[in-house]
Design a protein around this nucleic acid. Structure first.
Lengths: 235, 235
DNA sequence: TATCTTCCAGTTTTCGAAAATATGTATATC
DNA sequence: GATATACATATTTTCGAAAACTGGAAGATA
């Protein structure tokens, strides 16, 4: 929760909060998700200390967490590398995520209170502000969209009582985010469709219609993944 | 794999391989699993540098990974603490683990080759050597049993093609291991029962009978968890 | 030429000192 | 007595230098 609250300011204001230890973790993960560091690239400390302006130890700590999250691999003595990507992995991650997300949203619908509902409306509004923009502007603020999209999906399931369900779901979501980036330069018409899907998912959730929410979610996620799978297999 | 190959020697030979960075991670996790560090206990660097004979940075790196694995919590500025335990969490972890383990064992049964089978037989033999011991000796070597029990269950599913399925399953298994420790001082007769269950699970798996293997696995895991849940709720 | 040493440059890994932060205690103020 | 302030102690967090390690190039031997 602490991360999300400061995320909106941290995205733009590099100079304000120099670099708390947890912040470098978020920036590093963000750079991997958005392919600033490409898959299988070696992550050399000499380069990274300059880029992030932190010491070796701090970096090592962040990298270690990313190993557990599956974004980075560590070979003893040979250092850290960005984890590889493949169509096979995306297919598997999609299946796991859908199973977990559907269970989580059902759980949340059964247990969510007024604050939960209010938060969903709020973060959806933030998301829709970007999604309703003309295409060119929408693309310019893509990194902001990624964050708000993540916040939206997280808000939907935040009331779920199973903490491990929430946790495992989030691990899979982060992985999907990485692949989602492959479709960054999607055809112009697509934005409108996603905009509508998000609105429908929110409506079904607030109406406490778990069956419908699950169904819409499945279509929403699978459509994006299928597009990315095609692009990966085309290579 | 690298860890398991040296584990048998590392268990006794402290002085030989002083303390590679990855080794302290394993020892720390082991100490948490076996309640050397009790739930919610603060993990102070001053104490731990003496105990493990490594620097602060190395410890911090290991702790960071354990945060991602759910064994440790980190509150900024206040340091690391051992994650709490509860009957509720155990109930949830058991459900997730069973779902994943059953899928994984089915996957492995469909895809396993000769090496997979041979490895299962080998690690089961290692496990049975301890389990067939008289109760007193069996208890003395409990930490070895934990490791061999882990190796056995891992061998059963090691041939599963879904790498994330394997990974998520392992995260849940490690969590279960922690709760399993609650029942360390189980009644004397129980050992014989578990010994038999392991043999049956192996037999069903090698016979490629996925339905039976799933069923036996469910009984095996749920029985242990139920026992631990009762003990936790009794407090 | 092929194979085996030896050495060197680049990198990772480890460590403890110094800075930043939090906690606890005593003192002052109302 | 209760609350607030200032100081002292304890602990975390950060950082860069030193040690350990790796891969490959140069040289030696047969």
């Amino acid at each position: 929760m602490k991360n999300t609250t400061e995320s909106h300011s941290a995205s733009q204001a590099k100079t304000v909060d120099p670099s708390s230890g947890q912040d470098v973790l978020a920036r590093l993960r963000s750079d991997i998700v958005s392919s600033v560091f490409e898959p299988e690239a070696r992550l050399k400390f000499a380069d990274m200390t300059k880029r992030f302006d932190v010491g070796i130890g701090t970096l090592r700590e962040a990298l270690s967490q990313l190993v557990s999250e599956g974004f980075v691999t560590l070979e003893a003595g040979k250092g850290f590398k960005v984890a590889p990507v493949s169509a096979e992995e995306l297919i598997e991650v999609t299946e796991h995520f859908l199973y977990l997300e559907k269970r989580a949203v059902r759980d949340a619908i059964e247990n969510g209170d007024d604050d939960w509902e209010a938060n969903i409306v709020a973060v959806h509004h933030r998301l829709s502000l970007i999604e309703s923009l003309p295409w060119a502007q929408r693309m310019e603020r893509h990194s902001e969209w990624v964050q708000r999209h993540r916040d939206f999906h997280e808000a939907l399931v935040s009331a779920c009582t199973g903490r491990w369900l929430f946790r495992l779901r989030s691990i899979m979501f982060d992985q999907l985010d990485r692949y989602r980036f492959v479709t960054k330069k999607a055809p112009e018409g697509l934005g409108k469709k996603k905009f509508e899907e998000h609105r429908e998912i929110m409506a079904a959730t607030l109406a406490r219609d778990a069956d419908l929410a699950e169904k819409l979610m499945e279509i929403h996620i699978r459509d994006t993944s299928d597009r990315a799978i095609s692009l990966l297999q085309a290579k």
